[in-house]
């Protein structure tokens, strides 16, 4: 009994140690915030277009009834990583036939217009979320974030941070394929 009690601290330390070892897993990001939206219907929202752009606005109804799942990307011109991500998303739209909708988060319209003119505009629709309220509805924790929404309006996948770099692109591509968001026979 005495020996058992004396051994308890050691056992506790080993248990904690195992958790620490697990926690050091380089794939684990302690800052990642889980989403409650996965497998849930996309939140209701109705956003006006960005003034000065011809791209129409975005509402929840636009996400429903599509034959394939669509991608919703939250972006802003002030967001540095969004630039890098923009090129990747553009490629997905141009080469793979992905359908991309945008939520322009807390961005001055003139900045957004200039940004899209510089970089190109791959978005079918862009809603301007000036107040950030729609961002909250989506459980946004930062920009950029990217969601895949099914034809019935269910959120299938969420990517926090820019889809940049081989690992991120691979994960995103997998998610797109799994969701069936890419048209059949598309390149790649």
């Amino acid at each position: 009994m005495k020996r058992l009690i004396a051994g308890l601290p050691f056992i506790a330390a080993v248990i904690f140690g195992v958790f620490f070892l697990w926690g050091l897993n380089p794939d684990r990001d302690p800052n990642e915030i889980p989403s409650v939206l996965i497998s849930q219907p996309a939140p209701a929202f109705d956003l006006d277009p960005v003034p000065g752009l011809e791209t129409p606005g975005l509402a929840r109804s636009d996400l429903v009834g599509n034959e394939r799942p669509v991608v919703v990307n939250v972006f802003a011109s002030w967001c540095v990583p969004c630039r890098a991500e923009h090129a990747v998303l553009t490629r997905f739209v141009e080469r793979e036939g992905m359908r991309l909708f945008g939520i322009n988060y807390k961005d001055k319209p003139e900045d957004a217009v200039k940004w899209l003119n510089d970089l190109g505009n791959p978005y079918e629709r862009i809603g301007s979320d000036l107040s950030g309220r729609t961002g909250i509805e989506w459980g946004l924790s930062g920009v950029p974030e990217t969601f895949i929404v099914d034809g019935d309006g269910t959120v299938l996948f969420r990517y926090v941070g820019p889809v940049v770099g081989p690992d991120a692109v691979e994960r995103f591509t997998q998610a797109l394929k799994q969701a069936g968001a890419l048209p059949k026979g598309a390149a790649s």
Binding site: K2, A6, G7, P9, F10, A13, G17, F20, L24, P26
Partner: peptide
């Protein structure tokens, strides 16, 4: 830096684990 983390965890395992094992052995 995960490498640093692993190294310190190793140090922890040796020092804490070792001393507590010694404790479990000798304290009674």
């Amino acid at each position: 830096d995960p490498e640093r983390g692993l190294y310190i965890l190793g140090l922890l395992a040796v020092s804490i684990g070792g001393s507590l094992a010694l404790y479990a052995w000798r304290a009674p």
